[in-house]
Design a protein around this nucleic acid. Sequence first.
DNA 1: GAATTCCTTTGACATAGGTCAAATAGTGAG
DNA 2: CTCACTATTTGACCTATGTCAAAGGAATTC
Lengths: 186, 186
Amino acid sequence: MNITDFLSTIVPFTDDELKDIVSHFKKETVLKNQTLVRQGEVCKTLYFVEKGMGRSYYLNENGKEITQWFFGVGKFMSSVDSFFQQTPSLYYLEVLEDATLYCMSKSDIDQLFAKYHKMETMGRLVTTEMLTKMVNKLNAIQFQTARERYDYMLAEFPDIAYRVPLGHIASYLGMTQETLSRIRKG
Amino acid sequence: MNITDFLSTIVPFTDDELKDIVSHFKKETVLKNQTLVRQGEVCKTLYFVEKGMGRSYYLNENGKEITQWFFGVGKFMSSVDSFFQQTPSLYYLEVLEDATLYCMSKSDIDQLFAKYHKMETMGRLVTTEMLTKMVNKLNAIQFQTARERYDYMLAEFPDIAYRVPLGHIASYLGMTQETLSRIRKG
DNA sequence: GAATTCCTTTGACATAGGTCAAATAGTGAG
DNA sequence: CTCACTATTTGACCTATGTCAAAGGAATTC
């Protein structure tokens, strides 16, 4: 999924606007298992995933990694509130497969927000979509059995569910690896 | 919490802008237990809570009410995705105490989004804040014991926790009324 | 202010999913 | 190809929280 195409699907930018906006993204190739942001650091970059995939996670009180979200192709990836509020990130951000990312700094995006009303609209729409997805996850987690939660995972991340370690998915869904393993069996 | 003051705290509107924006809100008084939106209806109005409080909830497969969110003084209240996408609401919206609300229609808010770049910025910031709060709830629900979840509730809605029926809070926190009752004891 | 309805507490018991430990299967480096 | 390491599966057992049922308390209505 190309960044230019993606932007066009959200808001009807003109060609000139698109060219300007896209020129502020820097293309980067990142290898598997690379960490983009650490817990406690301020997240300086917004990433758009053209190829590959990533996840955000944090360490709980026992030092266990808890996956917070998966970011697939055609999505923005970031430690959202750290990036937008420039506060220390609660999450690690890592790449799970060799990836091609388009990167933009906070100051560049702020400039674009200020310059283009439509850019601000896009920001709002993307945030609203994320909010909706978060509500979906919440409802799945809050009231469904372990099996139903796994079904939610398959529906929300069909492309990702079979490409990442079991334990990442289990912690994302709020269950143990053992439970998820048993579910996949039956 | 006055709507004019609230808007000023988020984005530095000029006095003229503020006057224009606020003029599109219609003040309404709503009595306790009144339903503002039903599941399946399209939510036509965004509400700002000046006084009182409300909640959103849905009916699960057994017909039980599940509280999805509480809206206190100084917050926007709506069935967010129904309102912004004009799709059937997944939630009921009801007022839990006699309330004073400022109401705005979708078309009015869209006009203001189009007219004022700053209004769009406000939309994005409010949505981001809601997203952050949703993530907090998710983390509480996903990995904490029933007791810890109740502590989260007290922290997030200190003003609300003692003013609504136990069952509303229990379903919000993803536990039974009986469990919450036992927690409040010990 | 009695009646009705709704809300909260309490008790006994059931169970989904967690914990701990060990066995097995995959995977990447040399 | 083999070793070393990591990820997954399996089993036995445990516990937090759910379910069901009934009894108290509060609050609203007439």
